[in-house]
Design a protein around this nucleic acid. Sequence first.
DNA 1: TCGACCATGTAAACTGTTACATGATTGT
DNA 2: ACAATCATGTAACAGTTTACATGGTCGA
Lengths: 181, 181
Amino acid sequence: MAQKNNLKYIILGLLSERSLTGYDITKAFDSDIGEFWSANHSQIYPLLIKMEANGLISHEIIVTGAKLEKKLYSLTQTGTIEFKTWLQSPTPELSASKDEFILKLYFIENSTDPLLPEMLAEQLMLHHNKLVHLQSQMTNKFENTDRKQAQFGHFLILQHAIERETAYESWLQQTINNLGD
Amino acid sequence: MAQKNNLKYIILGLLSERSLTGYDITKAFDSDIGEFWSANHSQIYPLLIKMEANGLISHEIIVTGAKLEKKLYSLTQTGTIEFKTWLQSPTPELSASKDEFILKLYFIENSTDPLLPEMLAEQLMLHHNKLVHLQSQMTNKFENTDRKQAQFGHFLILQHAIERETAYESWLQQTINNLGD
DNA sequence: TCGACCATGTAAACTGTTACATGATTGT
DNA sequence: ACAATCATGTAACAGTTTACATGGTCGA
């Protein structure tokens, strides 16, 4: 999708918490943020350079060991303002959530289609695994109420994702159960 | 997103039901399919030309009125096979469902953030409207059980979308209700 | 006749993925 | 020494959106 440069705002948001290298930002997509957004380092590094050229961020060189130079990026005041402006702006578009399985299902004409049972079973497994993963994330990150206060948005997102996957799993299961009718 | 050419399969799927012009295909995204996928005519027309060059589809010219030429596309045998192969193949990836509101929420650190109430209220309105729309779609298209049999996949998708929006709305409402705690 | 809609295309810009490419550090 | 990981970049390609561009049909 050619969206409205959401990646820029993710980077601004991450840097608003603390200074990070491009590598740190890349890794954030393997854990926390990876739950609901993805990005590769090949997209992140050029964007960091562009954002710096636009005055949103700046960097200082940190030398590790003998000569490994890291670029530690920080928000400029302009960047801070741009991030806050984005956060405060309305979000009037609902995303279309492009789901390839749903696409295939659309072309199933009949409830007796022999493909249906395995398609549904495959998705049930995938969504069940996702749900288990999300639940373990929830346990790991928000065992104690303190962190739930300190990262309230993150908590809400996880809660929402768990409810979404629970509903998805339940829909798949019911559909499988009713196939015989 | 640079996905795996799902648009190609949508076009194959639509043409497997009946022959269509590029304009017909474009309009399908304004109604039925628009519920869960989007595409513009500027993407569809070039792809139709490419798919014809690859032997998946063919067209005949239909003249309307004095001289308006329409291209009516049909599946070739190769196209039919490619569509069926896709439908039968596994769908092992779960889409990340990139949702800008969720993104913003991630950066809300505290449950007392003054932005939260309006953010949640805005989304509640959007998702409520979406739900109402989906429910009217369901009523219009599947009043009688016949069509539910004849377009089973479409029925399941609508059912799922309604359940998803119901859950989304309920999560938003509960979150709003609990903000005071 | 005029406006809404039918009908088809191209161009430019942007977003995202996969692959190519290089080198340093750290712990075993 | 060697492997895993840290660290940063570029290139090519693929998918998507927005804008530009043109002309025909049909009903009021």
